[in-house]
Amino acid sequence: MALISRGFRGRRRTDVDPARIPPGQYVVEGFPVLSAGPTPHVPLDQWTFTVRGAVGEPRTWSWEEFLALPSEAVHTDIHCVTKWTKLDTEWRGVSVDTLLGGVDASAGFVMAFCDGGYTTNLPLADVTGGHAWVAYEYDGKPLEPKHGGPARLLVPHLYFWKSAKWVRGLEVLDHDQPGFWENLGYHNRGDPWKEQRYWSD
């Protein structure tokens, strides 16, 4: 039984379905920005997306080639480990299934790598099967740099640090290893519905 905070009543939202809010989260209207350093700016003519590692020949797409891949519209709720949840967000991007098409699933894991040096690790099962995208549009417009543009990973069923901003590729691995925040005390998987915020959760 949690400790009752004397005199605390809270400001409950009556306009949102509580079943859509993971434990410990609260709904925001804006789109908060979080990152560990300055926002990188890579010219689109120098941008590439690469799948490498345990995949045989690495594959690389230029920006134009990437935009020519089949894309999907994604309507989803997003949940940040810093407690905010944003409902009904609209994205467009390329399914990770498309990017990894044909990769040997026995490899098991991916590490997303990004401009600025950020990394995050994910089980292959969390980025395949229609669970993840590399998104380049938000709300019908090109994704803003501060929100991860030109392209970010979108893995909305996990806390949003897994949806790496400024993503430049996926390294397919046959073993798991912690990424940036996972090395700094955050949970290895980050399922918001299990409230897996920190390593010991």
């Binding site: 925001v28 804006g30 908060p32 990152s35 350093g37 300055p38 905010w84 040096g117």
Partner: peptide, 21 residues
Amino acid sequence: ELLVGLGHDPHAIKTERFGPS
């Protein structure tokens, strides 16, 4: 952005933000 424009190594700049939310 100003710091990067002045020529600072982006890796020597650590940021922490709190949103209006």
